[in-house]
Design a protein around this nucleic acid. Sequence first.
DNA 1: CAGATTGGTAACCATTCGGTTACGTTTCCT
DNA 2: AGGAAACGTAACCGAATGGTTACCAATCTG
Lengths: 116, 116
Amino acid sequence: MDVFDALADPLRRELLTQLSCGPARVVDLADAHPVSRPAISRHLRVLSEAGLVEADELGRERHYRLRTEPLAEVRSFVTGLMRQPRLPEHTLDALATEVRRTTRDRRRAAAAEDTA
Amino acid sequence: MDVFDALADPLRRELLTQLSCGPARVVDLADAHPVSRPAISRHLRVLSEAGLVEADELGRERHYRLRTEPLAEVRSFVTGLMRQPRLPEHTLDALATEVRRTTRDRRRAAAAEDTA
DNA sequence: CAGATTGGTAACCATTCGGTTACGTTTCCT
DNA sequence: AGGAAACGTAACCGAATGGTTACCAATCTG
């Protein structure tokens, strides 16, 4: 499962937050949320497939713990988006008027490309 | 729509990446992807509801541009998760001890892996 | 050993999602 | 004026999602 997909569900995000305080058993995680234990189990499976969580098997218990490595992808994606549009204030205004001014040019260029 | 939800779809992420290079029209965005234009329109609606995108109406065209403010929430959530597991060493040791105490024989494979 | 605890999986169901086609509206261009 | 272009929306559909109950295996514990 994809990391972004794994983070999309609010309950899964809560589970991660909870696990960020330390490892926890499935029952403990389930007790903290208003859903059944099997539901928690499946969410943990999704998180596990995304690499966001790993389990230590201790007897009949499984201690899940957070794994932060996959978050790097999210982080880099977000920072990538946030860095680009950092243009000076007037640039956007200029761009808007530029767009309006060159609409016809663009149109002509598109037509030319079409014939090509 | 939720920001995390908006980022969950790979096509939407591509749209955002594309918009990070500057505003674009719907047709331009659609031409760059193997889905129909109405599909793009709906994705843009989702992104818009998440605040990740805004449109300037220029005649019959709509120029969508990236909006990075909502990404702050994602960023803070991720950094929050990445910062937490930096627990003092002895905390993990204590946990390992606890584990050893409540189970029969358990090596510190987990502890070793943690330090690794 | 008997029973309780932990936790995964299967089967089922309602809802959501993402894609498509069809259609309507507004704006531009000849 | 009339056709083309840009774009949103509605209707429809198959696939995926998330929740529940029921069930099973494995592990403590009295």
